[in-house]
């Protein structure tokens, strides 16, 4: 066995040499940090290092699970995810269906190029625009005034609007881009089905209902299942840039909380415990969704 391996190594030393840099990088930056999980069970003291710090058992977990933050984080994370699921998932499908009914090719291409564009604007710029447009003397208030409203709201300081802002800016940014996958599914539908439907006397709407939608149903189901799998992993990028102590109540999610407590507050052990709970729950959800996907659609992540 060892002899064979040695022979293999010698014969293929170039191939092994080629993969070596990646293997080392993965060892250092992917595998090695997993030791940090034990941080969650310790009281971390920088002077003693991770291994020298004293054990505290499940103290950090108990602290978090009995803190008022637990409920707030779960509520906000689920709130933003479900909200995104409700508007961010159907809309790209609707867009794809509408685009599919356009016969004028240049118009279709223009719509595609323009609706994909926001996806390429950086997060920082998007949040900069949001901050400026939704300020007290911003464009949104001006539009509301023009329409006869009061227009005196400081949108980003009101907890009740925060999730709406996060979700709808996400829709603005991803609507076109997320429709690509459905456009591809639509391109795969057999044209003869449409001919047959027309001969049977089906109009445009009926064709959509009886031919187009069933044609892209598998894609829709997979995307929804995967969304359920990531229900508790909300991206904290935009939230970090837009929230403030005024809107922590509705904007704080696991990612932002871990960043605030861990990186800014240097409570490494406690925030690692929070992050660990999150990882485990997410992993279970993803595994569950994957299992469901395999049962229902024969497609899965692994």
């Amino acid at each position: 066995m060892w002899h064979k391996l040695k022979l293999d190594m010698r014969r293929n030393y170039q191939a092994y040499l080629m993969i070596l840099p990646s293997v080392l990088l993965i060892a250092v930056f992917a595998y090695f940090p997993t030791y940090g999980i034990i941080l969650a069970f310790k009281k971390f003291k920088p002077a003693l290092g991770v291994f020298g710090s004293p054990w505290v058992g499940l103290k950090h977990f108990r602290d978090f699970l009995s803190s008022p933050y637990l409920w707030r984080l779960v509520r906000n994370t689920l709130g933003i995810s479900l909200y995104t699921l409700a508007v961010g998932y159907p809309l790209p499908i609707v867009l794809a269906l509408l685009l599919n009914e356009v016969n004028c090719l240049p118009f279709k291409k223009t719509v595609q190029t323009i609706t994909y564009m926001p996806y390429f604007i950086s997060t920082v710029v998007i949040c900069g625009m949001v901050k400026s447009f939704l300020g007290y003397d911003g464009v949104l208030n001006e539009i509301i005034k023009a329409l006869g409203g009061a227009g005196n709201v400081s949108w980003l300081s009101e907890p009740k609007y925060f999730q709406t802002i996060i979700v709808w800016t996400g829709v603005w940014q991803g609507l076109g881009w997320n429709s690509i996958i459905y456009m591809a599914a639509l391109a795969g539908i057999d044209q003869q089905l449409y001919e047959a439907a027309k001969i049977d006397g089906a109009g445009r709407l009926r064709q959509i209902w009886y031919v187009t939608l069933p044609g892209i149903a598998p894609t829709i189901i997979i995307i929804i299942i995967m969304a359920i799998g990531s229900l508790l992993s909300v991206s904290s990028d935009k939230i970090l840039l837009l929230y403030s102590p005024l809107t922590y109540e509705t904007g704080d999610v696991v990612g932002t909380y871990v960043y605030r407590k861990g990186i800014k507050g240097a409570e490494y052990s406690y925030s690692e415990a929070v992050s660990l709970i999150d990882t485990v729950v997410n992993f279970l959800l993803l595994t569950g969704a994957n299992w469901l996907s395999r049962k229902l659609t024969d497609t899965s992540l692994w």
């Binding site: 993965i26 595998y31 999980i37 871990v258 861990g262 990186i263 490494y268 992050s275 990882t279």
Partner: peptide
């Protein structure tokens, strides 16, 4: 073995804090 070594990292990780300390 190398393939497994690579793919496992897509699902397992220590998170932000240990990476920061590293």
């Amino acid at each position: 073995g190398l393939m497994i070594y690579f793919t496992v990292t897509m699902y397992v990780g220590g998170g932000l804090i240990p990476f920061f300390l590293l």
